[in-house]
Design a protein around this nucleic acid. Structure first.
Lengths: 194, 194
DNA sequence: TATTTTGATGTGTTATTGCAGATCAATGGT
DNA sequence: ACCATTGATCTGCAATAACACATCAAAATA
């Protein structure tokens, strides 16, 4: 469609992929037909604000009006937060599979132990940088080991296991990763006219 | 309409009023019927993204998708930039009148001198905080003085005059205004879970 | 290789926007 | 008192988003 919406469409698609969701999965979350999502991502429709908003919500995003003056700052912030740190397709699939398994498990297991496990999983999948399929497969196997027994003890062991993996990742990241955003990276007052 | 769009509508209205534009003026700028703008501001329609976008553009705003994580930071920034610093109705009218006069003048006058004057006027009307009707009336009188003569010299005098007024305002603001955002006012990583 | 999943595309129907143009009460300006 | 402007509201009409399905080729998975 118009140039103005092009970026929004791209952002939606990027956000969905960053979350490792298929169009159909997203369509379920946002209660919108898959066909429609496809059209939207291809910028083939001029959709309604409510639709855009609900899809954005499903992707943990918010639709906002930001003053031109604040644009550079806002863009910088969203970039630094959303920055999709190159999680390859295989990792995404692995993450998706793990999520499924946990969801399936949720019907049987419950309680503080399980919630703890869920948190650990959320933690490790949120690291994103340094996430590679091997690690994720370990995570998956760990969870599979619960599925058979289902005991509280197994849940705890898995949680601890995953925490350990997460720490390994964090350590790896700390050693040879981008040290830190060196500059503030945004400022107000873009000096828009003399 | 839906709760989600309510804030957008409110922001549009606020932005328009902050610019001292009437619905009809905005409708001209955005090529959208006034009746439609009224409905939009009252959140009575679920409008298309292109419409929202074009109106936002006319108001110097941009439609953006921002990740939940970045929301607090972004809101803080946009607030600090857009912060409608209580320009009362009378001042708004005064500003509008000044703009009209300048537009009218633009048909006769032109050149670097006139552009300079225009910039001065933009500057002073953009200060917004500390703008009171008295000052604005002085500005208007100054411009009126050009209208009669129309000489280049008069234009220059007016520009200088307005610059002086602007400096007074800036000084006033610096002395007993909010000193500075004392805290960063925003941070990333809203610690949204565990 | 066989199966499943994914994203893109098509069809028909319904609901609603968006536009045009007019009206109106309230407010403000002269 | 008179006139202009503002914002809200109504009409009809055309365009099209949104939906529910269905289908399909390509890619991923088994």
């Amino acid at each position: 469609m118009s140039y103005a919406t092009e970026e929004l469409a791209a952002r939606l698609k990027a956000a969905r992929e960053a979350k490792g969701l298929s169009q159909r999965e997203l369509s379920a979350l946002a209660s919108v037909p898959q066909s429609h999502i496809s059209k939207i991502e291809n910028n083939a429709v001029d959709l309604r604000v409510s639709s855009l908003s609900s899809i954005a919500h499903a992707l943990d995003m918010e639709l906002m009006l930001v003053p031109r003056k604040a644009l550079p700052a806002v863009q910088s912030i969203t970039r630094s937060v959303a920055s999709v740190p190159v999680v390859n397709a295989e990792s995404k699939r692995e993450i998706a599979r793990i999520r499924e398994m946990v969801d399936a498990l949720a019907s049987r297991a419950s309680g503080a132990n399980f919630e703890n496990l869920q948190r650990r999983i959320r933690e490790i999948t949120q690291i994103q940088s340094q996430l590679d399929p091997e690690i994720l497969q370990k995570v998956r196997r760990t969870i599979e080991s619960i599925e058979s027994s289902g005991s509280n003890e197994a849940v705890n062991r898995a949680a601890e296991n995953i925490r350990s993996l997460r720490n390994q990742l964090a350590h790896r990241a700390a050693s040879h990763e981008t040290p830190r955003p060196p500059r503030p990276a945004y400022r107000l007052e873009e000096d828009q006219d003399g």
